[in-house]
């Protein structure tokens, strides 16, 4: 069942793992490559859905924030529906629900996309995250400081230029801390892929438990892998925030010193 090993320490590990440890960790080690492939599926689904959902959410958030006469209503309905129902139900509807209909199975979408569990998961996750991102991006756009908008108008920007140069960059910065939560929720939500046959991290954990009739090993391994991913994501966002929101931090240096140094730099004369 567990790995054959050549070193005494290895033998000892196998012995402890099989006989004394509450968890058979050698079994996990033997199947670790499966868990890594599972991590690939998890990361693919999470980040592709965040990317596509994020891009979709920008025009929808603008339509909501500026109360577009045609699109505001439909987008509101869309976000209301997808934020008001569980992701599991949405995924089941797409995967098991649509497959029940002859017309769907005959359609051109069935072969390449809807018959495939990976695509079903990606579509459900994308629609879900787009709905959440739309709403908090809308909130960030609405709270753009009026001074910034006024300044943009005063310098003669067209509405489109103003949105592109002033409103969206400013809204993204304000939405960034909230967005890190959405990314982590999406990563956690991606375990739903395992319920529609996909072998993501959770799917591999369930496979291991099912294959060897275990209760914990697969889930504990999955849990640790998710924790590592969440840790990496929070660190990533910390760095991103210092990069993007650096100008908002309280200043600790005096202004005079850098100004003196700047004068000595070559090229400083260009600003005379």
């Amino acid at each position: 069942m567990a790995a054959e090993s050549e070193t005494p320490i290895g033998d000892w590990l196998v012995l402890v793992s099989e006989n004394y440890s509450p968890l058979d960790f050698m079994l996990v080690a033997d199947n670790f490559d499966r868990f890594l492939w599972g991590a690939v599926v998890t990361l693919e689904l999470t980040f592709l859905s965040l990317l596509i959902g994020g891009v979709l959410s920008i025009p929808m958030a603008l339509a909501r924030a500026y109360r577009h006469p045609i699109w505001n209503g439909p987008v509101w309905c869309y976000t209301y529906f997808f934020r008001g129902t569980p992701l599991l139900v949405q995924t089941y509807l797409l995967y098991f629900g649509l497959g029940q209909f002859e017309a769907v199975r005959e359609s051109f979408l069935w072969g390449p996309i809807l018959s495939n569990a990976w695509w079903c998961a990606l579509i459900a996750f994308t629609l879900n995250t787009a709905a959440y991102t739309t709403e908090f991006l809308r909130g960030a756009i609405v709270t753009t400081p009026f001074g910034e908008v006024e300044a943009a108008k005063a310098s003669g920007m067209s509405p489109a230029t103003m949105v592109r140069r002033i409103v969206l960059p400013s809204a993204f910065r304000r939405a960034l801390p909230a967005y890190s939560n959405e990314v982590i929720f999406m990563l956690h939500g991606s375990v739903i892929a395992s319920t529609i046959t996909l072998q993501d991290i959770m799917g591999v954990g369930r496979w291991l438990n099912g294959r060897y009739y275990l209760a914990f090993e697969g889930f504990v391994t999955a849990m640790i892998m998710y924790m590592i991913l969440v840790f990496a994501i929070t660190r990533g966002f910390k760095l991103w925030e210092t990069h993007w929101l650096g100008h908002l931090r309280a200043r600790t240096e005096t202004l005079a010193k850098p100004a003196v140094k700047a004068a000595a730099l070559p090229g400083a004369s260009d600003f005379r």
Partner: peptide, 18 residues
């Protein structure tokens, strides 16, 4: 190999051609 939680789900996906 495609793994399902219940045998009923296996039959559902066999019938839908997945």
């Amino acid at each position: 190999l495609v793994l399902y939680g219940t045998q009923e789900d296996v039959f559902a996906d066999l019938a839908s051609g997945r």
